[in-house]
Computed example of a mutant assay.
Amino acid sequence: MDQKRGSIVIIGCGDLGTEAGLRFAEAGYRVQGWRRRPELLPAELAGVQADLGGPLPALPADAEAVVFAPAAPERSVEAYEATYLRGLERVLDAIDSGPAEPARILLVSSTAVYGDADGAWVDEDTPAAPATPTGKVLLATEELLLRRRPDGLVLRLAGIYGPGRTRLIDQVRSGTAAAPAAPHPTNRIHRDDAAAAVVHLIRSNASPGTYIGVDDAPAEMSDVVNFLAHETGAPAPEQSEGKSARGGNRRLSNARLRGTGFEFAYPDYRSGYRAVLAGRGTRHR
């Protein structure tokens, strides 16, 4: 291990942050994971008790990068503002007033900042138009980071699936999943690829700004649920005339992320879900 490397601070070190933290640790960094219950973190990460609503711990003086990846306790505007907008503001204030001078700050955001595109392709140059109040808070948080830190990084993730994130698989197995009859593209990324993208953007020479984190293959929800039914031996889901309310009607491009040299372990939902069903990608569980 290269002991000359400094510290990485992951604020909101939940499932995604833990996977990213393990990858940083393997690369030789000291990693601090800030969360309300640090005792849940694996031994490779130094757990720090932190609540974004209370006094913040001091960042280590050798902090090379900060990853801001908290999860709001509920889907309300109040919870999102407290967690993301005011939480990030307090972290940035702490950086400005403390000895740490991290060269990289990355915000994990969401593709929920985009609106409906009627099935068209969307990339980072597409104007954000959040359709929900919580999406508007996320966009405001992104704008805060890039205003305060023009060298900041924003990673907009689509639907994350993977170990412990098996909602769709569970629905297919229980017979509650539906196959929409109308075309409706969906976008997703495996948890391990999402974590790898965080590490890659921090460690690479990626230009500051915004990146979309999705796999190579936007897919119709009907194709995904029928694939899962086949893989699990469950009955084929019934067709539904209703329109899916999740994810927006758009196809998200990962070309900018790919252009930095990032490679996906699971470039499409077939390879990713097969790994989940086989029990792979469970390193910290």
Rank of each mutant, 00 (worst) to 15 (best):
P130W: 10
G12T: 00
L144Q: 12
P127Q: 07
A178R: 15
Q49N: 14
A275W: 08
A265L: 13
V113Q: 05
A79F: 00
D96R: 10
G175N: 05
S253E: 03
P208T: 04
G247L: 01
Y269T: 05
S271V: 09
T166G: 12
A278G: 09
P208I: 03
E39L: 14
A120L: 13
T210V: 11
A194W: 05
E101M: 14
Y266H: 10
V31C: 12
G175H: 06
S271Y: 04
R251A: 07
D51M: 12
E74H: 07
E124V: 01
T166S: 13
G54F: 15
C13W: 01
P267D: 02
Y211G: 07
L88N: 06
E64G: 11
R148G: 00
R270I: 07
Y269V: 06
R147D: 09
L153H: 11
L106P: 03
Q32L: 15
Q171Y: 03
P150H: 05
G115F: 01
E263M: 14
S110H: 03
A181V: 11
L85S: 02
A197F: 01
Y84A: 00
G119I: 09
R75Q: 08
A158W: 02
A245P: 13
G248P: 08
Y29W: 11
Q239L: 13
Y211F: 14
D15C: 08
P218R: 07
I160F: 02
E39N: 15
Y80L: 03
R90Y: 06
R156I: 02
D125R: 08
E143L: 15
P60I: 09
A112L: 09
H230Y: 14
T176W: 11
S204P: 10
D193W: 08
Y29D: 05
Y211K: 07
G119T: 09
N205E: 15
V31N: 10
A131Q: 14
A195T: 04
P127W: 00
T186I: 01
I10Q: 00
I189L: 10
D62K: 10
L153I: 09
G28H: 03
G17I: 01
P102C: 01
R283P: 11
I95V: 15
L145N: 04
D216V: 11
A69K: 11
R149C: 09
R285T: 10
C13D: 01
